[in-house]
């Protein structure tokens, strides 16, 4: 053996305790089920205080539900992502894979007590989120048996592409610039400048630079000198 006396075999129980990930093809998904009704209980008891009763809150994080339509469920593309008519991009607008929700809720939610939900609670509350998003009916029971069917209803299931050059270190960049050195074409005036309101919103920049050296921090508690 290459490295004598280093490490040991993991036991089955150990792997079971930590190997909790669930893939888009549902590898890793534990058997079980949960109803929308039970999901509502879980949501209102353990989730709503942060995410809002309808998953709409942006107090603690961006909204989970909203912005998807019946039409999206058919096409598998959330139209609002192209027309930008929604003020925010909710979780349900973006997420393409139901496994992602299941896996994440199971591993990380509720935020202050992650990994404390039962398998049934995770099934239930996932179902409830999809119910709030009008993907699943009120009477639905989500289970390892039917989750692949539910995947086919995800509003943005066709909204992901892996066709780009940023996965492989040798991938082909999409933006190709040229290093002009002399008399390069440039607009005469800045196209955008720092809004006056943003000047001091991070605190006084004078206190975020040394009081000696090549430069000083600008006193942003006052307007920019003219």
């Amino acid at each position: 053996q290459g490295y004598p006396n280093i490490g040991r075999a993991a036991t089955e129980k150990e792997v079971a305790a930590w190997d909790i990930d669930v893939r888009p093809d549902f590898k890793g998904l534990p058997k079980g089920s949960g109803t929308v009704a039970k999901g509502m209980q879980v949501w209102e008891g353990k989730c709503a205080q942060c995410h809002g009763t309808f998953g709409e809150s942006n107090e603690v994080f961006t909204p989970i539900v909203g912005g998807t339509t019946k039409e999206d469920i058919k096409t598998g593309r959330v139209a609002a992502l192209a027309d930008n008519k929604q003020p925010q991009r909710t979780t349900m607008m973006k997420v393409a894979t139901v496994s992602t929700l299941w896996d994440y809720i199971n591993r990380a939610m509720p935020w202050t007590a992650p990994k404390t939900l039962t398998t049934e609670e995770v099934y239930s509350v996932t179902a409830y989120i999809l119910n709030m998003a009008e993907v699943l009916p009120d009477e639905f029971t989500l289970s390892d048996k039917n989750i692949a069917e539910v995947q086919k209803l995800m509003p943005n299931r066709n909204g992901m592409t892996q066709n780009h050059g940023m996965w492989d270190v040798k991938g082909k960049p999409d933006v190709k610039s040229v290093a002009c050195m002399k008399d390069c074409p440039v607009g005469e005036h800045p196209r955008s400048t720092l809004p006056e309101a943003a000047r001091n919103v991070h605190g006084n920049v004078a206190e975020q630079n040394r009081s000696f050296g090549a430069v000083r921090g600008a006193d942003t508690s006052k307007p920019a000198p003219t």
Binding site: R8, A9, T11, K13, A17, W18, T112, A113, P114, K115
Partner: peptide
Amino acid sequence: QAAKGTAFEGDPNILKLPEHATTL
């Protein structure tokens, strides 16, 4: 560590999730 017990089921540091895995 594993050698310690007979019928070793696993390391309690794995089997029992640590506080930092289950709190904020």
